[in-house]
Computed example of a mutant assay.
Amino acid sequence: MRKMFMAALVCVGLVTACGAQNDPVEKAAADPSAPASSSEFPMTLTNAWGQTTVEKKPVRVATVSDGDTSIALALGVVPVIVPDVEDGDPVAEYKKRAMDELGVTRLKTFDDTDGIDYEAVAAEAPDVILAVNSWEMDAGYAKLAPIAPIVTFAEKDDADTLPWQERLKTAARALGLSDRADEVIAANRRTIADAAAANPAFKDKTYTYVVIHPEQVTFMSYGDQDPGVFEDLGLRKTDNAKNYSAKKNGVSLENLDQLDADVILVTFPFGDEGLLSLSELESNKLFQSLDAVKNKRFAVVPSENTLSSSIAYPDALSSSWVVEQLTPILAKAVAGA
């Protein structure tokens, strides 16, 4: 199964190709053309573990999470090494689009089954390491710091709550690509604004996004969760969202009424390993009693194409693709279809 739910994703047309060669290391080294002022460097960045200094505009960029890979690709940078989150599965559609735009057929990867492969990252001699989407910095920062400057978040809580736009801007500043980050954000805003304008029925509808994990039913749209595409499209979290957080997001079967909203979206990324199957959830008496379920304003979000993980953990590369995939699902749910 794809390694789902790792912060793990521009309008792809904004990604600027840097030549036609396919070797990721050579292409990364050949991409100094993106606009940046040398006066921006050296640059000292403060993060949750201290400070890091980027001496000059980076060329060789390593990433330690799928979300960081998405940031690099969204900015038009091909990393010298990335985690192998696909694990043999096809590359996510939005990532494939970006790679095609950059003329890259593959990315050099390290096996991330046991976390970051520090030796593999070091072997690529990166100028900088992107880690603004990684949950492994508590353990990993000290091991990565001797390899290259680490670009990560300013506060530890940002690992769960920092919007993708801020992650993108943090990384872009360290890469000397702030202007390009602004272009990416603006393009995504246009895509979302167009979708919202085409679906006025979304406005002010409450929603709950639910993930069926192996050990629990997870209230994923908790109070301080990055609102991502739902709220950008005009929806808003239910009042119950304030009762949940990144560290307190489990819903017992006796409390499934907590999920009720104008629209409920549920995803089953773990298949048979999930706590409940779709049929088991739909046959649950308490779930059946919810207004959203009785009025057919309940929909399943597919996980096989990475949509569910991209919704839960939005990033710079997947945002427009998520709008494209999610909007018709939401439209049917809002209409009770």
Rank of each mutant, 00 (worst) to 15 (best):
R2Y: 07
R2F: 04
M6S: 08
M6H: 14
V12N: 07
P24M: 02
D31N: 12
E40T: 02
P42T: 02
K57A: 14
A62M: 02
A62D: 03
V64D: 08
D66V: 06
V78P: 04
V82I: 04
A92I: 07
A92F: 09
E93T: 11
Y94S: 01
Y94F: 11
K95S: 13
E101N: 03
T105Q: 14
T109F: 06
D112V: 10
G115L: 04
I116T: 04
A122L: 06
A125L: 09
P126M: 01
A131T: 01
E136D: 10
K143N: 12
P146H: 08
E155N: 15
A159C: 06
R167C: 02
L168W: 03
A172I: 03
R173I: 05
E183Y: 01
I185R: 02
D194M: 13
D194E: 15
A198M: 06
K203L: 12
Y207H: 08
T208Q: 07
I212N: 09
P214W: 03
E215V: 13
Q216R: 14
T218V: 14
T218C: 11
D224P: 03
Q225L: 11
G228E: 09
F230E: 13
K242R: 15
K242Q: 11
A246W: 10
N249A: 07
V251N: 08
S252N: 07
L253I: 12
E254K: 08
Q258K: 14
Q258W: 03
V263I: 03
T267C: 13
G271W: 06
D272F: 04
D272K: 15
G274F: 01
G274R: 03
S277K: 12
S279N: 15
L281H: 05
E282A: 14
K285V: 11
F287M: 11
Q288D: 10
Q288N: 13
S289E: 11
K294S: 05
A299T: 08
N305H: 01
S309K: 05
I311K: 02
A312Q: 08
A312I: 05
P314E: 09
A316E: 07
L317Q: 09
S319M: 12
W321H: 00
V323Y: 10
L326M: 13
P328I: 03
A335T: 06
G336P: 12
G336V: 08
G336M: 10
A337K: 15
